[in-house]
Design a protein around this nucleic acid. Structure first.
Lengths: 240, 240
DNA sequence: GGGTCGTATTAGGCTCGTCTAAAGTATAAA
DNA sequence: TTTATACTTTAGACGAGCCTAATACGACCC
């Protein structure tokens, strides 16, 4: 009963809400979905009628619990598909996003179940993003921090990388930075440029053992302390 | 550039053209797609503008070569998906159609390639329908005949069963009639009711070795002579 | 050749999701 | 307190794909 488009709006609002905090601006949604702000306003009104979002005019919008459930369903589809494409169809880590976007609205419950089973009910997708469980329980905050928050000498383990930008993804993949990779911060230069030494994880070519990352990239990499041994279970760091 | 809906019309026209011969009636398309005849008329006009069909008003419509190519592309997606779901995701033979219908418009060229590769470039889907090749060359007429054309004592091998009706499909699956099954016609009763003895193929329960099929069902089963050993390569007769 | 009947097309209208242009609101600066 | 600026919403239009009701066509029968 809910159109693909409505699901896309809910997914977008969920994502923006998770990234930037609570009331989400019309213009942010518009930019995310590549439509104009008036289009967003009118869509948001329809979502409000269906009680999927709450909204205060001129202020912003946030998901109701029902809206969040719908968003989690779409996200579950998306991330299961990413994992499946990576693991069973040989897609590279950096290629799965677009295909999953195409398919996420069109799979049945049955398909979802069988894919989850084929994967052994994974908890994270190849980017390290958590996969909502079958009951669509809200995802609790994790204990990760942006790489850009860390200083020289610290050792961390990559938990997730953003799947938003294809080019960035290929760049990181090239550089050998993936979920599970252990990094030591060797330098933080002006403007936030971070240089890291890559240790373990996928074998990186010798000349890539050190890597400088622009602030924007470092900010989108979420890491956990490298001392603890509670690293995310090796989860789809394959493919190239 | 072509909408999903347009692709559906082209696929429908292709199918009807293949089943019932050349100029396809507006009402036939309407019934197939479950829309009203005026809707078909207006859609057909748009397809004509794009030179995907040729049409003579009040007469009927047929595909141009370009239109046929589009239909074959969709059909290739559909049948590869059916085969993949059956072989790699454990779907029963009789369950794959709807899921493939949902997905066929939404997969990329890349996905098509990888699925075809994972399957080893199969030539038929689990129903026995031929899968258009990657170049989308027109499918030439095969040498099959409807089971209902055969008389008592003849032995035949099932080449394809129609994937149009879910209930029929489950019935045949139950009965042990699938592509590759060898049948002996033991009786043809009034009104075309055909009784067959099932030999070989999937093991049928003992009490199901003989099976009576209504004329409409017998007409939708395409068979080859059972004497020749040119049986279709064992192709997805799995699942239940 | 003129009805009759089934099928096809035309006419006109609806919803959905989008747009542009115009008007309104909130906020921060002067 | 007033004004400038950025953002949001309102107003109005459009194409796609569908519908119903009305009209046109064609084929077959007498």
């Amino acid at each position: 009963m809910l159109s693909d488009v409505m699901e896309d709006y809910l997914k977008a609002i969920y994502t923006l809400q998770t990234e930037d905090g609570d009331p989400v601006a019309t213009s942010a949604i518009a930019e995310y979905l590549d439509v104009t702000p008036p289009t967003v306003t009118s869509m948001v009104e329809k979502l409000e009628e269906r009680e999927l979002v709450e909204r205060e005019k001129y202020k912003g919008v946030e998901l109701t619990p029902e809206g969040e459930t719908v968003a989690l369903e779409v996200l579950r589809h998306h991330r299961l598909l990413e994992a499946y494409l990576n693991e069973h169809l040989d897609y590279a880590w950096s290629e799965v996003h677009d295909e999953a976007d195409r398919l996420e609205h069109h799979i049945s419950e049955e398909f979802e179940r069988r894919v989850a089973e084929a994967l052994g009910d994974p908890e994270v997708d190849p980017h390290g993003d958590p996969i909502p469980n079958a009951d669509l329980a809200p995802i609790e905050d994790d204990d990760t921090t942006p790489l850009s928050d860390h200083g020289e000498g610290e050792t961390v383990v990559v938990a997730r990388v953003s799947d938003r930008d294809d080019e960035e993804l290929r760049y990181l993949s090239e550089a050998g930075v993936a979920p599970g990779t252990r990094l030591e911060v060797v330098d933080v230069a002006p403007f936030g440029m971070v240089t890291v030494r890559i240790r373990g994880g996928e074998a990186a070519p010798d000349d890539r053992r050190e890597q400088s990352l622009p602030e924007s990239v470092a900010a989108s990499i979420r890491v956990r302390s490298g001392d603890s041994e509670t690293a995310t279970p090796e989860s789809g760091v394959g493919g190239a």
